[in-house]
């Protein structure tokens, strides 16, 4: 498996650390309530198909990136810096 780091280009999967669903970048407000926090930290869409997940280019440039991937085929459709992914959202 290879992932294209937005900074470094295509690299072997070994260089990256996988964290989980990209929802992790959308931290709720401290007072958002137990349900919201439970959803943030524990509950997952866990799609069989296209997903967005969060990887860290640990053995590379140390960028956290949001990768768009297919969980059925392992196809990697794209990757962007977490910062950029965040900026796109309202």
């Amino acid at each position: 498996m290879r992932i294209t780091c937005p900074i470094c280009g295509p690299r072997d999967r070994r260089e990256f650390y996988y964290q989980g669903a990209a929802v992790a970048i959308e931290r709720p407000a401290p007072d958002a309530g137990a349900e919201v926090w439970d959803d943030y930290l524990h509950n997952r869409d866990n799609p069989a198909g296209e997903t967005r997940d969060l990887w860290y280019h640990e053995s590379g440039c140390a960028a956290w990136i949001v990768v768009t991937r297919d969980t059925n085929t392992h196809e990697v459709m794209g990757a962007e810096l977490a910062d950029d992914a965040k900026a796109e959202r309202p």
Partner: peptide, 13 residues
Amino acid sequence: MRHLEFVHQCLAP
């Protein structure tokens, strides 16, 4: 180290 980068890049860019 990973955590600090996460907090900075993903939560407090």
